[in-house]
Design a protein around this nucleic acid. Structure first.
Lengths: 231, 231
DNA sequence: CCAGTATATGAAGGATCATTCAGCTTGAGG
DNA sequence: CCTCAAGCTGAATGATCCTTCATATACTGG
């Protein structure tokens, strides 16, 4: 992440030899497994170490305490996701909003799905203040990327781009989280993914400003009925 | 909730005198406060008792263990939310999808907002297996209510109502959660709420089946462009 | 092959925490 | 006013856990 981690959360030392790298990876992997198998309450340093096939002491050579381990895990993960989303957004500059939504949902969904176990584990990991700020930073970063993308749309602009952007991300982040937590069968999950794209597209269509040449009546305003139809 | 709680999670005894009721309420309230102030990791029986102004022993007269306390708290809360949503849905049978969305989002949002501290606290409370099944039950219950409502819509029906329903709820649940976790300023939160309605409405419009009298072309199909526009 | 550094070990210290229980206080009914 | 049940107390218990450190092993450059 762009943010510098607070001093008390920085790793103790970095692995220099190959086997050390293996060890650290094993520790991360074990953390995920314990989180999934035993839940955050039973996430014990000893348990993690045992599952990683190392001793507790080894873990403390790389992380000053348990909190720092979780912090590093989140950091690592969010960095990857953020980068993927950023790249996807940049690739869509100047495209149509339909394509943008496709790319955004696709990238985010894929990033969360490649290692769905990690995603689930981190959703489940208890949210402490530290990780909360990590997540906030992640949010701002993605926010900026998508805002820039939307601003460059070839076929639409919005009266209040900031609100539209926030809404879009809120819905996408939330929907994805919901799918993971409700543990929907992957077939249904896939369907929801498709529907999510439809939803976001129709939303953007509904809130985009009418093109300059606003002809009175006609199909161009048909989408508007969606908003004006008072409930 | 409709589901009978597992034996090991049932309260030890119910309060019979007035002061006992006060005590139990104080314990619930204290749990929320500790959860918010100190996080789930520092949610200690002693801390809760102290904050509630009672002794640890008192808490153990009503709850066999910490887990049961959290279970009861979730149960209480989800029951209220579920009932509100159910009522709102029933009131909309036969209405238009626009009104339904308004009512559904409104009811859910309101239910989560009346005591936003509780909502936040429970989102944060570590997800254990027990509470997970509670949440699942809640999901099924709301699912049934909204599905029945949508099926009765006066102005639309859907090719795959089940998927549409799941998507709708996934998006709403998720978006609301996102808003709470990102702790958006309440002004922005309100705007997102409004936008969420727009989003859901335009989604339902986009996926609804064409009315029988399908005239070729014409404004009736204009909404369809939203889906067909390949990305 | 050797010295020096990196890495790994795991028993032990110290702290926190969930849960119990024997005794105390308060309220209700008679 | 008395009695009994309901309600409350909090020190003590036993378990669990985080973290350290003295010691041992593996690697690397020379």
């Amino acid at each position: 992440m762009a943010t510098v981690p607070p001093a008390h959360l920085t790793p103790r030392k970095r692995p220099r030899q190959a086997r050390a790298t293996v060890t650290v990876d094993a520790i991360f992997e074990a953390t995920i497994q314990v989180l999934l198998a035993d839940g955050p309450n039973r996430l014990t340093t000893t348990r993690v170490a045992q599952r990683a096939g190392v001793s507790v002491g080894t873990m403390y050579q790389y992380f000053p305490h348990k909190q720092a381990l979780l912090y590093a895990l989140n950091e690592r993960y969010l960095e990857i996701v953020a980068e993927k989303v950023e790249r996807a957004c940049e690739a869509q500059h100047g495209a149509s909003i339909g394509q943008m939504v496709d790319a955004l949902v696709g990238a985010y969904w894929e990033a969360k799905t490649v290692r769905s176990d990690v995603t689930r584990a981190l959703y489940r990991s208890a949210v402490e203040l530290d990780t909360e700020s990590l997540i906030e930073a992640f949010g701002r970063r993605v926010d900026a990327a998508t805002a820039a993308m939307l601003a460059s749309a070839a076929d639409a602009d919005f009266a209040d781009p900031s609100v539209v952007n926030t809404t879009l991300l809120t819905a996408i982040f939330g929907a994805v989280r919901s799918v993971f937590e409700r543990n929907l069968p992957s077939a249904l999950g896939g369907e929801v993914r498709g529907q999510l794209v439809v939803m976001c597209r129709s939303y953007l269509e509904a809130v985009k400003k009418e093109p300059e040449r606003a002809a009175p009546g006609g199909p161009a305003t048909a989408n508007r009925t969606v908003i004006d139809d008072a409930g």
